[in-house]
Design a protein around this nucleic acid. Structure first.
Lengths: 239, 239
DNA sequence: CGTGTTTTTGAGCCGTGTCAACGATAGTGG
DNA sequence: CCACTATCGTTGACACGGCTCAAAAACACG
């Protein structure tokens, strides 16, 4: 399987590629890099000259506060480009880390710029990817601002399930191997470790969704979405 | 004064424009539209075929929850394009409203696409503007997630002062006519009206910053920035 | 001046944080 | 295969930051 497959799949999930566009994407020089769990790809303050595509595993971005607290600002599944924005804004205001063991594909900015120059469609799709990223940020602002712990958690679970489904990452029984520790979930939702634990327990005991042994099993999608106030439109998936 | 002036000033604050690029921006057809305070420009769910430039006044974007709560996700000063993203993602996941009496310039998407096609520099700068928008979102996630009420409020004030200064909107005494009600500030920071009031009071009584009669006066920038943990890098201003 | 909005303040409550301890699990080396 | 260790998850008790309710004061504007 070519290294560009996950990227092409991702772009096709949010738009339409012609044969020519696929060939152009295929012309990107992608150098794979294997990462162990918790390995940093980029540090706050770095100025990258390349971007990465997540090929397997899961990555996260987070900001670190002076007191050591962390705010996770995004999770990234295969096919996504977590630092695509570094093409047009230099300094990283956050760090990028592999949550699990992972493989990423590195692509030089110059190479990306060439593709963007040659195909307005690809330019639009890559731009679109950064805009969907931003739409997710908006939901996370709301998760952390106006939704309570339960609704925010439910919203994040809905989002992750929907994104995992869109890239075919769900197992045949509909569950998803969710690789986050509760600490990481809490850091994404602005909750303490203790409280995210209690919130997940509440969802489990309500037979809405169960996170156990690293597996997310949604028991009642209707109710989960209703608790969350979830509307998947913001993910701008084609189907 | 030409209607494109605020946009050109904005683009020059985050990048460099050649004479040709300026001429291209100048070739945009901009139709002004006057808005009264609280008037909606776009509603959640709309699919715009044009974008707007804030020419005067202040605009805000917000999401509305089922229980009627609001989460403000951004404020927009003159020169900014609050719905530039609608170029590449259709459905609005939030509403756009004029906070004050305002004038915006409407630009057709097709017209913008023409300019983007003709100038890689302008494409890059407009993309960059949406990416800076996203960088601000990340800080707001942190404001609402891991920073407490005081630090979050301080951070927002730092950000607004910096952005207002960058477009020359500060008065000669260094104050800024901040047009938000405390309710709107609370909706941006995920705080209740009562608590944002108390938080502003604390900053005032500490001689750090005073918000009075719609005017923001920073009394001790050092301390405000320190309370906030503010680092302006994420705004990616040229200087 | 009167009326509606916005700001301010007090009192009490509740959601979430902190602290502390224990249990479960997985990986490691003997 | 077991003992050891590190990490992660779970639970209880209690503290506190921020919310709600309610009412008054200040302000804006016709």
């Amino acid at each position: 399987m070519s290294l560009v497959e996950p990227l092409i799949a991702k772009l096709q999930s949010i738009g339409t590629l012609s044969a020519q566009d696929r060939a152009l994407v295929d012309s990107l020089t992608i150098t794979p890099r294997r990462l162990v769990a918790q390995e940093y790809l980029l540090h706050q303050g770095d100025v990258p000259t390349q971007s990465v595509i997540v090929l397997s595993g899961v990555a996260a971005r987070f900001q670190e506060l002076k007191d050591g607290d962390r705010q996770v600002v995004s999770f990234h599944l295969p096919g996504e480009m977590p630092d695509l924005h570094s093409l047009y804004i230099g300094h990283m205001d956050h760090s990028l880390v592999a949550i699990t063991e992972a493989v990423v594909g590195q692509v030089a900015h110059d190479d990306l710029r060439r593709v963007i120059r040659e195909s307005p469609t690809l330019m639009g799709l890559l731009w679109r990817e950064t805009l969907i990223d931003a739409a997710i940020f908006r939901q996370w602002i709301t998760n952390n601002g106006r939704r309570g712990a339960l609704a925010g958690t439910a919203h994040l679970l809905c989002e992750l399930m929907t994104r995992a489904r869109s890239i075919g990452a769900l197992r045949s029984d509909g569950t998803w191997p969710m690789p986050f520790t509760q600490q990481q979930l809490g850091d994404a939702l602005g909750l303490s470790l203790v409280h995210i634990n209690r919130t997940l327990k509440a969802l489990r005991e309500d037979n809405v969704a169960a996170v156990e042994r690293g597996v997310l099993r949604v028991l009642d999608w209707e109710r989960l979405a209703q608790i969350a106030g979830f509307d998947p439109t913001y993910l701008h998936l084609k189907r």
